[in-house]
Simulated assay, not measured.
Amino acid sequence: MDALARAGVGERIAYQRRVARMTQQQLADAAGASLGTVRKLERGERNPGAGMLEALADAMGVDVAVLRFDPKPTRTSVRAALPALSAAIATYDLPEDGPARPLSALRVAVSEAARWRVAAQYTRIARCLPDLLAELARAYHRASGADRTDLARLLVRAYRSADAMAYKFGAHDLSARLIDLMRWATVEAEDPLMTATLAYVRTETYFAARAHASGLRALENAIDTAPPPGSTRQAAVRGALHMRAAVIAGRAADASAAQLHLAEARSLAGRLPEGIYCGTAFGPDSVRAHEVSVAVSLGGDHLTRALDVAREWRPPPGLPAERRSGFHIELGRAQLWSGLADHAFASLRTARDIAPQHTREHPWVRQDAAVLRRLKRADAESLTSFAEWCAAS
């Protein structure tokens, strides 16, 4: 990845196209460009504009930041979208007049935003969610009966995608407001599994406030009131709550509660395949990744467990990018704390390869990169480049 960072944008386009197993013609067709344009871009004979770069990234299914390899434009584009997002949610109950697509088209748009969320493609969310939320609000207030209920469910999902972007970029007040709107829309959606999922998302506010013991109590209350695990979706939602409770129990230094919830999550995961249920990845692989999260949260002697997991298992490619990169970020912290500086840096670079935006915005990455830089002042360029990339101080 460091060689790729030094490459020009044309080389990065060519590299990602080969990774996507696309021909130049296929990329041109998917991006709405000519074959000659793609060839010139890859040879460095022409520089793409912002719109073309986004079209190419969308066509290859990668984040545009991978092609730019420049943190500043991504941060700027996401933060520039936050006022528009605030305006869209401020008028949730009195939306401005305007068009609204049919329910079927809105359903597709919301599902696409959910895919961007689990893939940690926050610039796409920033680009599309303000308008989509305003459109959903218009459609909701014009609808009645079953359509209105369906639109409330779409609003919950769309608010969650917007919240992921806001939370990851440190806009915690905006994130809390989006969670409040999720709560409002969940009541209108009349879906008990969405109520349980809301408790999973709301845990962000406890992480941000470092109110870990309170967050654990809130999750345990949600588990008590969640539907019993009679169906696959019910088992997955309950299992995800246990998984989340295990991590926050670790942050609260409650090892017994952490292990109890992790065991419950593991038991439920054994009953179903890995997948995304009600917007949350859950299954045997997700639980295994969370074993590392719990070990790092508990720290001390528990770090050995994180290293043991990594020796025998790595997240498979089918796991969402955000979860895979999170595993390597947390593994890197365990390795750093265990005196394995080179391994820690390798883990951070792997996380960057998987999900650059998630990795760059993660506070642990900045902290750990800064520590690594101080520990290895003589180790040159790649570590310095990485630290500058993620704005480590």
Rank of each mutant, 00 (worst) to 15 (best):
G8Q: 02
I13W: 01
Q16M: 07
A20H: 02
R21Y: 00
Q24N: 09
Q24E: 15
Q25K: 14
D29Y: 11
A33K: 11
S34P: 02
R39E: 12
L41H: 04
L41W: 11
E42I: 06
R43Q: 14
R46T: 09
G51H: 12
M52P: 00
L53G: 01
L56I: 14
L56C: 02
V62E: 09
V62G: 11
L67K: 05
R68D: 08
F69I: 04
P71Q: 05
P71N: 06
T74M: 15
R79P: 01
L85V: 11
A90Q: 10
D93C: 02
D93Q: 11
L94K: 11
L94P: 00
P95A: 10
E96C: 06
A100G: 11
P102D: 13
L103W: 07
V108M: 09
A109Y: 05
S111Y: 05
A113P: 06
W116I: 01
W116D: 08
R117Q: 12
A119H: 06
A120S: 01
Q121T: 10
A126E: 07
A134Q: 09
A134P: 00
A139Q: 08
A139Y: 02
H141D: 01
A143N: 13
A143M: 15
G145V: 12
D147V: 07
R148M: 10
R148H: 08
T149Q: 04
T149V: 10
L151N: 11
V156A: 03
A158R: 12
S161M: 08
K168L: 12
F169H: 14
A176R: 14
L178N: 07
D180Q: 00
M182K: 05
R183L: 08
W184T: 00
A189H: 01
E190F: 02
D191V: 11
T197F: 07
A208Y: 08
H212N: 13
S214C: 03
A218W: 05
L219T: 12
N221T: 10
A222D: 12
D224N: 15
D224M: 10
T225G: 05
T225E: 15
Q234Y: 01
Q234L: 04
A240W: 05
H242W: 13
H242D: 12
M243G: 04
A249V: 00
A249N: 00
G250V: 09
A253T: 01
A255S: 13
A255D: 13
S256T: 13
H261T: 05
S267K: 14
G275S: 14
I276D: 01
I276F: 02
I276M: 03
C278K: 00
F282D: 06
D285L: 03
V287Y: 04
R288Y: 02
R288S: 09
A289M: 15
H290L: 04
V296N: 03
L303W: 04
L303S: 04
R305F: 09
A306V: 07
L307P: 09
R314T: 13
P316V: 00
P317W: 01
G326T: 09
I329G: 02
E330Q: 12
R333P: 01
L336K: 03
A341N: 02
D342S: 11
H343P: 03
A344W: 02
F345T: 04
A346M: 05
R349M: 09
T350S: 04
P363S: 07
W364M: 14
V365E: 05
Q367P: 00
Q367M: 08
Q367G: 12
A370I: 04
L372E: 03
R373A: 15
R374C: 02
A378W: 13
D379H: 15
F386G: 07
F386C: 08
E388P: 02
W389H: 09
A392C: 08
